[in-house]
Deep mutational scan, measured.
Amino acid sequence: MTEYKLVVVGAGGVGKSALTIQLIQNHFVDEYDPTIEDSYRKQVVIDGETCLLDILDTAGQEEYSAMRDQYMRTGEGFLCVFAINNTKSFEDIHHYREQIKRVKDSEDVPMVLVGNKCDLPSRTVDTKQAQDLARSYGIPFIETSAKTRQGVDDAFYTLVREIRKHKEKMSKDGKKKKKKSKTKCVIM
């Protein structure tokens, strides 16, 4: 069974824990209790493949930012979460993405942009803004509501699919490099 290491990042209060708990335990946590770091595991079937999701729910508070490099190193894919009623959390996505790329030393890291709290009427981040940002990053965008469960499975499952595509691409690139290195030079 394939294991996928997913990391949920975003500013404090955007609903990272609520999304994760909704996926794992099928219930909505409405009281806000700032996370330092929590880890969850769940076995699911995605596109006919049974897999184990190892999900790291991270601290959004700035005082825990020193811990970010460590979990970013171990993560295979990242859910970059903002709240649709919090423009600052949307603007912060850029910083999370840049930090992930720096730590992973790669421009090509599996990510999904997630606009959470889409059940709320007080939207300050337009869907088109988020779609445009995701398009500019070359990553999928999904709106979710941890409260109603809308888009929750889709967000995590899409990230797994992005990781699969990335692994497939990397193995193809690896095979191309191996083929090239088999060419021999004969000096007579």
Rank of each mutant, 00 (worst) to 15 (best):
59 A>H: 15
38 D>Q: 01
71 Y>V: 15
74 T>S: 13
44 V>H: 03
61 Q>E: 15
63 E>Q: 02
16 K>N: 14
105 D>C: 04
2 T>R: 08
160 V>R: 08
80 C>T: 03
175 K>E: 12
173 D>V: 04
83 A>I: 02
128 K>M: 11
16 K>W: 02
134 A>V: 13
40 Y>T: 00
82 F>G: 10
151 G>R: 10
67 M>D: 00
155 A>W: 02
32 Y>V: 00
11 A>N: 08
34 P>K: 00
63 E>D: 12
107 E>Q: 11
70 Q>W: 06
188 M>C: 07
156 F>D: 10
76 E>V: 11
21 I>C: 07
155 A>E: 02
160 V>A: 07
122 S>A: 10
72 M>D: 02
62 E>W: 10
70 Q>H: 04
53 L>Q: 08
29 V>Y: 04
83 A>G: 13
9 V>H: 14
98 E>D: 10
146 A>F: 00
159 L>Q: 03
54 D>W: 01
168 E>V: 12
188 M>V: 09
152 V>I: 09
156 F>W: 05
145 S>V: 07
117 K>G: 14
101 K>Y: 07
65 S>F: 04
76 E>L: 05
10 G>W: 05
113 L>C: 12
68 R>V: 14
120 L>R: 14
17 S>V: 05
72 M>K: 01
37 E>W: 00
86 N>F: 02
125 V>D: 09
70 Q>L: 00
31 E>H: 02
43 Q>S: 02
80 C>V: 13
53 L>D: 01
69 D>I: 04
119 D>R: 02
66 A>V: 15
42 K>G: 05
12 G>T: 04
117 K>R: 13
187 I>S: 11
43 Q>C: 01
41 R>W: 02
110 P>F: 02
11 A>K: 06
129 Q>R: 11
18 A>D: 01
133 L>W: 07
123 R>C: 12
167 K>R: 10
40 Y>S: 01
169 K>E: 10
42 K>Y: 03
71 Y>T: 15
88 K>W: 09
67 M>Y: 03
132 D>G: 10
73 R>W: 07
85 N>S: 05
157 Y>S: 11
66 A>G: 09
127 T>Y: 08
114 V>Q: 03
17 S>H: 01
120 L>T: 12
177 K>I: 12
182 K>C: 04
25 Q>H: 12
132 D>E: 08
67 M>Q: 00
156 F>R: 00
112 V>D: 03
56 L>K: 00
142 I>T: 04
29 V>C: 09
19 L>N: 11
10 G>A: 11
22 Q>R: 03
122 S>R: 08
82 F>C: 11
22 Q>M: 05
166 H>G: 12
131 Q>R: 13
19 L>G: 12
86 N>D: 14
98 E>C: 09
68 R>E: 15
31 E>V: 03
41 R>S: 04
167 K>D: 10
187 I>T: 14
28 F>Q: 00
22 Q>N: 08
180 K>A: 08
104 K>C: 15
96 Y>N: 03
28 F>A: 00
34 P>E: 01
28 F>W: 07
69 D>E: 09
105 D>T: 06
11 A>C: 14
33 D>A: 07
55 I>R: 00
185 C>H: 15
23 L>C: 14
73 R>H: 07
115 G>F: 12
117 K>N: 14
173 D>I: 15
36 I>D: 00
175 K>G: 13
72 M>F: 15
176 K>L: 13
64 Y>E: 11
92 D>G: 08
55 I>Y: 00
31 E>A: 02
78 F>I: 13
30 D>E: 10
16 K>P: 05
3 E>C: 03
184 K>P: 08
48 G>Q: 12
155 A>M: 06
18 A>S: 05
186 V>I: 13
20 T>N: 14
108 D>K: 09
175 K>C: 06
68 R>D: 14
41 R>F: 03
164 R>S: 06
124 T>Y: 11
5 K>C: 06
60 G>S: 02
39 S>K: 00
15 G>M: 09
123 R>S: 13
172 K>I: 11
78 F>V: 06
30 D>A: 07
8 V>I: 09
4 Y>L: 13
169 K>M: 12
137 Y>S: 14
53 L>K: 03
135 R>E: 12
69 D>C: 02
120 L>S: 12
